[in-house]
Simulated assay, not measured.
Amino acid sequence: MTMTRTAATFAPPVMEARRWLDGVEFAVDRPLINVSQAAPVDPPPLALRQAMAEFAVEQDSAHLYGPVLGNDDLRSELAAQISAHYAAEVSANQIAITSGCNQAFSAVISAITDQGDEVILPTPWYFNHKMWLDMAGVKTVDLPTDDDLLPDPERARALITEKTRAISLVTPNNPGGVEYPADLVRRFFDLARETGLRLLVDETYRDFDSRSGAPHDLFQQSGWDDTFVHLYSFSKAYRLTGHRVGAISTSPALLAEIEKFLDTVAICPGQIGQFAALWGMRNLTQWVAGERDEILDRRAAIAEGMPRLEDKGWRLLGLGAYFAYLEHPFGIASDELARRLVPEAGILLLPGTMFMPEGDSAGKRQVRVAFANLDRAGIAQLFDRLQGLSF
């Protein structure tokens, strides 16, 4: 029997990691430290929840289909905010709202590729991007990064073939945390434009970038939407993970193709989630700024604590947004290490093998820590436990 593409795709890593908890009991004075998933665990702020509840009760439209590409008011507001943030001119007809940023990526890939085509992903990659490419029958061409976790445009150029359709970047990066410098992102844009490719830039964690102002100038380039496809998520900024609201910014012509995918998968984004995203953009600017400050403080706590781990042979490869990406000092592979950390240290994290091509030796030495849900005390406790490890 022929194996389907879905059957050949690896299982969802976060769900796999959760299964490592089955049957494990944690002492009251040594609870589990879960740094496996990059998602807020707290609900949206109360004012937003109240507004969502009123909308659900008072507006019949909250429970009906809407436009496939999203509601006009949300598309217009996002276009205005992108224009302001990036000092550019973006129009509502260049915006589509999606059921989360993963769907945004899937929709774009479906619109620009055919079976057997190729997309270049820097490694370590975001595993859901790799999973979708596998299920779509698109070959993932891995672009190894160096110790700084930054991809090299010239190394990417050497990987381009007649089958290549896109290069996909994530900044601030998942899993590495690193923020791609503006000039590096621009060099990838120039490469994509020169070679006739699409450049996908997933900025799910943009709201937690340590830099102020625009992180790149791609929206300012003439005819940007012929090359550049911008992906965004409202989930992290407004704690709307369960409501699945993401966005795509690109050319109206490409959005017309993307609309076909969206119409057959979800028909339209959920109304309550779209309302929440719009309300958040209009009312929670200062609140989001406070959330960003807190994340940056937790990032600082990781940096301040690293000398303790470096003394034990650990190395920090990347840090930013929600993530710290580390090289461990032990003589066992990271997938085995991650499983053993659950019962032996009360830590749930993801091994680098989940973000690398199968057999890549670098992934066996790396782990990802999603620290956004730990305060400074929790980070200190995590470091205490890591510091005391011996394998």
Rank of each mutant, 00 (worst) to 15 (best):
A62K: 03
F330E: 08
R18I: 00
Q366R: 08
G318C: 03
T164V: 06
I295W: 10
Q220L: 11
P31S: 07
A345Y: 07
L296F: 00
D190C: 04
A56I: 09
P144I: 00
R49T: 15
V342Q: 05
H63T: 08
G137N: 11
L255F: 07
G290Q: 11
F330I: 09
I347T: 00
D375I: 05
D293I: 12
G273Y: 02
R193K: 14
L169Y: 03
E162S: 14
T161Q: 07
D297E: 14
I295E: 05
E162N: 12
D293P: 03
S91H: 13
A111M: 07
H328M: 01
A111L: 09
V24A: 01
I267A: 14
T204N: 09
S212K: 14
R187D: 15
L284Q: 04
T164G: 04
T161I: 03
D142Q: 10
M135W: 00
E291N: 12
E259I: 12
N71F: 07
M306S: 07
T250R: 05
P175E: 04
K364I: 09
P357S: 03
A56P: 02
I302D: 07
I112G: 04
I97E: 04
N71E: 14
E327N: 09
E16K: 05
V108Y: 02
D263Y: 09
A111I: 09
A56V: 10
G273D: 04
F275T: 03
A53M: 10
V24H: 11
Q221D: 06
A247R: 01
V367D: 05
L317F: 10
D117S: 11
I33Q: 01
L254I: 03
G318T: 06
L159M: 08
S91T: 14
D225L: 02
A79L: 10
N71K: 12
L262K: 02
N34V: 08
V245A: 01
T227I: 14
V141R: 00
G70Y: 08
V367M: 10
A136N: 04
R193Y: 07
E58K: 15
I272F: 02
A277F: 04
G378S: 00
L218Q: 05
V288F: 08
Q274M: 06
S106F: 12
R198E: 03
A301S: 12
R30Q: 13
R376W: 02
L382N: 01
A362T: 08
H328F: 01
M135C: 09
R282N: 13
